[in-house]
Design a protein around this nucleic acid. Structure first.
Lengths: 148, 148
DNA sequence: GTGGGGCTTCCCATTGTGGGAAGGTCAATG
DNA sequence: CATTGACCTTCCCACAATGGGAAGCCCCAC
């Protein structure tokens, strides 16, 4: 199976498969005489694992750990659980931050007339910083959505 | 005031101030004889506005719009409100996605013994993809946290 | 033998942010 | 006045994960 087939079968784009290979997340694929990467069912299985882990929000680095555990028949399920729960904590923290932003904005918006006049409590707040020293983060890229 | 002072006063790092200038979010600062950027209170005020908007999760592009509205004395508060609410919608969507991940992971973890044995429902699930075709996103960078 | 589609590698862009090097400046102290 | 240390300048690099696209080779079907 060539990379295009593997991509379709696994839900990971060809571009990403090459990237994962390049960064060492997956081992280099076998090559055909012409230099084409060839994949077996087993490889697709791994790619699928990766995609699912990505869908659960794990970083590539986290996936590397997960893959290592997956392949280690002597693993302790406690280690996997720790990773999962640790990630849940990260997720929840992020959610909390996002929620704080949303709530602030929402309440600000509810004080805004939303008409043709210029007066706006939202801008006033951003300007004066009444929203507290909430050192919240930002920078959460919105899904370029590599279509499934 | 030099850039370092402005950075401290506004909560925006010097690096970022230069970046914002370079990308046109703020207009080029005045320069001293030696080529040092100099800032007035007014500039710091603008930088503070930017930082607050970032804290509310707006992208630089969004902030550019917000700034334009802020400076436009003939703005309609409705436009500001639209932006705020639009952003809230984006935030909520993100939250929903994150929550789906957290919930899946949490429930999976709760089925995991978490002991020294290798059997693990979490890995099984990721492997077999029982978690549904939830094409959720990922890639939400966690705050490098430019400490304020 | 030719066309179209798939594959290869390589480079670029994205979004904000920080790190660091090489060099100029400035203020204070000896 | 000279040195020192803190500050400024520009320029390049890196990150994380992903897509876009170009140039060129390959393979199969017709």
């Amino acid at each position: 199976m060539n990379i295009g087939q593997a991509a379709k079968a696994s839900g990971v784009s060809a571009k990403m498969i090459r990237y994962y290979e390049q960064t060492g997340l997956v081992s280099p694929a076998a090559r055909s005489g012409a230099g084409y990467r060839t994949y077996a069912e087993k490889d697709v299985h791994t790619l699928r694992f990766i995609r699912r882990a990505r869908d659960l929000g794990f970083s590539v680095e986290g996936i590397a750990e997960l893959l290592a555990l997956w392949r280690d028949r002597t693993r302790h399920s406690a280690d996997v659980k720790d990773m999962a729960l640790g990630h849940v904590a990260v997720l929840r923290k992020k959610i909390t931050e996002l929620e704080a932003m949303a709530q602030t904005l929402q309440s600000l918006a509810s004080c805004c007339a939303g008409d043709e006049r210029p007066d706006c409590p939202i801008l006033k707040d951003i300007e004066d910083g009444t929203d507290g020293p909430a050192r919240a983060p930002h920078r959460f890229g919105l899904l370029p959505d590599g279509g499934a």
